[in-house]
Nucleic acid binder design. Structure first.
Lengths: 254, 254
DNA sequence: AAATAGATTTTGTCCGGACATTTCACGAAA
DNA sequence: TTTCGTGAAATGTCCGGACAAAATCTATTT
């Protein structure tokens, strides 16, 4: 009779045992019985307290990990790192192209490229020091040969300047060319979106009125070391581009 | 001698057994030995094939789930749903407020609210049929009492119109008020960002030139059934607001 | 006091077994 | 033909036990 209650039917809650357990622990973290920074009881202690096997305890703890509330380390223990179930809304980009939001069939026509010392205004956009040296590539992105979508300035570290003549040859995004040519992969990307108005020279190239409204998107690509290796600034005239995001509630917290 | 190899030391790969297993399966999915849509072998079959326990197989399968490559259903089996480890870049919003990107200290001052039949232009924004009935709430969001950030139109289903006089009382986002008052929770949110120019009446209220450039953000909140219960349209004059996103490569595929 | 080595604690990995629950296919009955 | 129910098959839940690996503590030595 070693097994009085294996896989026993859900008693009342309608949830499996490990879920009931994680719910209790979650509540105890939220009510600061286990404050952030403190160590939680060991697995064995929880086994005793709830009279369950280690499997069930670990399954419950796994859920707290998924919720982003605790952190575990072998040999050390379980530490509370957050009081509320962390991740609420998650955006998934399935293909890397979604990041750019232009489907494959756009093309960058390069106007020119040269080394520059960035102005203070550009530095603010890029997020670097003024007077820093970058290699700047200017161009216009087209849907088909007639329809310009946006003006684009691409800033890359001078070391990578030879990339310039690679761009525009095919429809691969610039930051993917980095991966192919230099083995530098984008580990993280930060984007800023804000309103602006198009200056004369660009307006002319895009075929719109000077000072007409635009959507400016700044994308900063960082490598594994957190170093920014590429920054692109795109300016979209009103009516030609919409940036869309879909967020879904995650961390199955029902 | 029932236990010849429990927790045996990592043989060569430096990875635990279940990880080696999941790597093999992942590769077999990528090379279409198990095409998308097909059913994978059962747990027991995998146990035999790799000569491991069900625990190890389930642990490996769990990883494929996390990678978003397979889907499992009790009684049914394991189906391949994606050929490549799904999620590439993931955005995490830690607090739900990040979704709005105004920190807590902004306040919506309501100008008025009334039932409307949406115009075809509004319908296009909202993503509904023209002539649909909605309850529209107009207001301006302030940082402090002097600094207007944006003009906001909130459209809610007529059934929820009584919510109107709740808004602006405190700094809770509108969609959270739904949860409190009606128990309707936002399961997903889709957002569109694009450039526009501010019409006269709004420009006056915001203290900017008519037709000056703006960033327009449309947010659509859907409940569990996929029904849109609230849409907000915010118009930000240039220079007063930047929308930021941070994406990190995810799906720990080292 | 500081460094080292060993013992202890704690989580990670893995096994075998058992029963529960869900899904699906098959066959009998209407 | 359709409906219904039975049973097989698959995954889900849970137990107990064992050893491995990492972190931490302790006692000893330098």
């Amino acid at each position: 009779m070693q097994d009085t209650n294996p896989a026993r039917p859900r008693k009342g809650s309608g949830h499996p045992r490990y879920r009931e357990l994680s719910d209790v622990l979650q509540k105890e973290i939220e009510t600061e019985k286990f404050p952030v920074g403190s160590r939680m009881p060991t697995e064995l202690e929880l086994c005793e307290r709830f009279d369950v096997s280690r499997f069930t305890v670990r399954e419950a703890l796994r859920r707290l990990i998924d919720l982003g509330m605790v952190l575990r380390r072998q040999g050390s223990g379980t530490v509370v790192i957050s009081r509320n179930p962390a991740t609420k809304f998650v955006q998934r980009l399935n293909s890397i192209e979604e990041l750019l939001q232009y489907s494959k069939d756009t093309r960058l026509k390069v106007h020119g490229s040269n080394d520059v010392r960035v102005s203070s205004q550009e530095a603010a956009m890029i997020g670097c020091e003024p007077e820093d040296n970058w290699h700047k590539i200017e161009g216009i992105r087209f849907l088909d040969d007639k329809s310009p979508i946006c003006w684009t300035d691409v800033f890359v570290q001078p070391a990578y300047k030879e990339l310039a003549d690679q761009i525009g040859k095919d429809e691969t995004p610039v930051f993917m060319a980095f991966e192919k040519k230099f083995g530098v992969i984008a580990e993280s990307v930060s984007m800023d979106l804000f309103a602006g108005s198009i200056e004369q020279s660009k307006a002319w190239a895009l075929g719109v009125e000077p000072n007409s409204p635009s959507l400016i998107i700044v994308r900063r690509y960082k490598d594994q070391n957190g170093k920014t290796f590429e920054v692109s600034v795109s300016e979209h005239p009103a009516g030609r581009f919409t940036f869309s995001i879909d967020l879904a509630r995650s961390a199955d917290s029902d």
